[in-house]
Amino acid sequence: MIELKNIERSYKTGYTETWVLRRIGLTIKEGEFVTVMGPSGAGKSSLLNVLALLDDGWLGEYWLGEKPAHKLNRKQRADLARQRIGMVFQSYHLLDDLTVAENIDLPLSYKSLPAKDRQGMVADILDRFKIVAKKDLFPSQLSGGQQQLVGIARAVVHAPALLLADEPTGNLHSTQAREIMELFCELNRQGTTIVQVTHSLENARYGSRIVELHDGWLTRDENLHAHSTEVGAK
């Protein structure tokens, strides 16, 4: 599904160059549920940006399925992301001026789908996530958990093969967090590959694999259903 080879990312600030990802090599198979962990500033979000094809400034090779993302231009990467990737954010990032239904419809509206098909897909997901009654509400009228539920619904409405989540339960209390993680498990069982970034070991245990970053280096890659592997770094 995903193959990263020697991925590197740095930011220039004046005359200094700060490296946030160093020679990352990672393979994620289809159907895996991977958790990226590490302390703040370790490069977790930067890695997620690379995986989401939202960042253009990295070096190395990135294969998404059969597609060499490293050889695509910005527009082609955006097209690829639109077709195959869904995003869930820590702060939900629902658009305040759109209703629940319109928020969920947003990624579909960028795919040139007929309006009727889109309406059907939105209705299905509302039903599946049991939020039909909320469809005409605005985000400010929802609780944090409900907003994240809508955020996930929006991320998966176009049935992406890869779901990326950046601290999806970071702003939720534990009961809501559990519900969201169980929803992720359900999606994963249905075939969606998931990569989440989290600080919570409890949430990480919902997944099948944990990779850990430190100062931009991949330092640990543990399969929770097998013995762990210490990745040779430095």
Binding site: A52, A78, A81, M87, F89, H93, L95, Y110, R154
Partner: peptide, 16 residues
């Protein structure tokens, strides 16, 4: 900027 960034992250191209 947040709105625009989210839109782009959800697949909106420059033209949109």
């Amino acid at each position: 900027r947040a709105d625009i960034a989210v839109r782009m992250a959800l697949g909106a191209g420059r033209r949109i």
